[in-house]
Each structure stands twice: as structure tokens, then as C-alpha cells.
Amino acid sequence: MAPSLPEPDAGPAPLPESQRRYLEHLRVERRLAQRTLILYEQALRRLCQLAEEAGVALERVGVAQVRRWVARLHGQDLSPRSLALMMSAWRSWYRWMGRQGLVELNPVDGLRAPRGAKPLPKALSVDDAVQLAAHRDEAADPVREACDAALVELLYSCGLRVSELVGLDVVPGASARGWLDLDAAEAHVLGKGSKQRLVPIGRAALEAVRAWLQCRGEWLAAGSTERALFIGPRGGRLGATQVRQRLSLRAQAAGSPTHVHPHMLRHSFASHVLQSSGDLRAVQDLLGHANISTTQVYTKLDFQHLAKVYDAAHPRARKR
């Protein structure tokens, strides 16, 4: 949902001709949605108000003034997301004004809105993750059950991205994006940026994959050369959307307390390994992160876990 911008304190006044023409350009030529047009108009009205308060013509606004205005609005608790939207509208209008020959300088170019706090990745608790991985539906089609059990085990055991999971082949080959070496208990994965990495496969995942391979052929047509590890009932490679749907349904059946998607199992894998080992570099390698700063977010999840343990266990922290 798009953020809403606060209305200027003064009542709505007619916009300058240049801004009315610009909004018409957005509506007719760029065909922006009505909601977006409303947000852009609000942003331009705010710009008019700030310029009027500062006693400066819109065409003569400078970089320093825009920087002060943004800092002031941020201090008034306007969210970074709303500020970014407002600055984008200003920047776009000044760029349009430049193309019309009405300004020489775009005072918003090169300026960025303050960064907002990044939300922490959502991970399952250890108990919930294990419960999901161990879930079995005895009444389900045995082939589908074996397939779903294997893909859940691999996502949680190896921390794979869903694109890496659906790219796995049964055997290695020149065109393979990834494959499993069950004897060595290793997954050969082609990750982001075409970077290859090796990920160990846990015992439970190995057993689940072997069980799936024993019945995978029942979904293959006679003479099929499909190399994908995970296939659907029609014998074709599973796609990411199908995996998400299957995982969501399986999580509901397993009684998971929240909506579960493939990346949540990757977050759970990283968080749980870090909780047990404390080895951030190892988790970085297992996830295939190019920069360790990307992996460091899981240290915050680890601290949250420790804080919950403290709150539950320490006599001076318990709520009465």
C-alpha cells in the first residue's frame, strides 16, 4: 500500500500553471494511476508551501534549501518512505521543468531520503520449523507427499532460495543449474550472480530426497528425458509459484502459527545455524552471500531469541 503524505497546513490553493501542466502530462502521457496522481499533487502542494514560507520562487529553490526542508519534515516524524515518495515527485517535476527550459538546476538531484529501519527477516522458531519438516500426511497421495516432504526438507536443511531449489537436476550436466550428490551429502547450487557453492545436506533431507526419487518416475511419461529433480504430476519441472503454494498448504496442515513461504525457511535455516554455532562466516558461506553485512541481520534475530529466553527464564525479567 502506497504511503500517504500529510496535507499542508494551509487549505488547498490553486497550483501554479507549471505544476498543473505537469500533472496533466502524468495523467495523459504517462498514464499514472489516480492514486499516484493524488500523491504527486500532495507532494507538489507541500513544495509550494515550503517555498512560500521561505520566500523563494519555486524556480529558484536550491539544493541547500531542499536539504533543510527534508531534514525538517523528517524531524516532524514523516516516515522515510513518505519522504522518498515526496522527493521523487519533486525531482520528477524539476526534471520536467528542465526539459521545458524553465529551470537550469534540479535541486533534488543527488539527494536521498533518510534511510528507514530495515525490517528483520521473519523466521520460524526451532520447534515450529522442526514440526513443519517432520509433518507427514498419511491420507495424501504418496507420490505428492514424498515430493512435498523432500522439498521442505531441502529448503530448511540447506537454506536454498526457491529459485535454487527448482533449478536442481537429478544428475549433473553441462546445462544443470544445480544437482545433489547424495553419496557425498552435498548440494551443488548455482546462486545469485551465477555463483556456485556447495551446501551440506542433513540426514533427514537425504532420507526424504531418496524416498522421493524412488517414486519420482510415477509422474514421468514413458521415454521422458526430464532432468528436473522436482516435477509435477504432469512430469514437468516445478516452478517457484507451485513450490510456494505447496509449502503454504503444507504449513497450514502442519499447524504452523504463521504463513510460511520458501524464503522464511531460508531465514529459519540461517538463524538456527547461527544460534547453535555462532559462526557468522560459516552462515555467510552456506547462504552464498557476497557481503557479510547481508548475513549480519541474522545476529539481530539471534539476539531476539536470546532476549526471549531471558524474559522467560530470568526471575527479574518475568512479567507478574
Rank of each mutant, 00 (worst) to 15 (best):
S248F: 12
A221C: 08
A187N: 07
Q214V: 15
E207D: 15
Q252A: 10
S175F: 13
L229R: 06
A187H: 03
P200S: 05
W212Q: 08
I201V: 15
E207T: 14
W212A: 02
D181V: 12
C215H: 13
Q196L: 13
L247G: 10
R210T: 14
A184E: 07
G178P: 09
F230S: 06
A211Y: 02
A211E: 05
G217D: 04
A240Q: 11
R177K: 12
V189A: 07
L238C: 09
W219K: 10
V243Y: 12
G239R: 06
H188G: 03
A221E: 03
R203G: 01
G223E: 04
W179R: 09
P172S: 09
A187C: 02
A240P: 03
R177D: 11
R203K: 05
E226W: 02
Q214H: 09
G193S: 09
G191Q: 07
D181I: 08
A254L: 12
K192D: 03
K192Q: 06
L198G: 00
A176S: 15
Q214N: 14
R244W: 10
R197P: 01
S194R: 15
S224D: 06
L229P: 10
I201C: 02
W219N: 00
A208W: 03
L229Y: 02
E186L: 14
R216L: 13
P172F: 04
A240W: 07
L190Y: 07
F230P: 03
I231R: 00
P200Q: 01
G223Y: 01
G239T: 11
P172L: 11
C215S: 02
V243M: 02
I231P: 00
G217W: 01
A253T: 10
G239W: 05
G236I: 09
G191F: 04
A254I: 14
W219E: 00
A254E: 11
E226R: 01
Q214D: 10
G235K: 00
L238E: 06
R250S: 09
L180N: 13
D181M: 07
A184S: 08
R246D: 06
W179C: 12
P200Y: 04
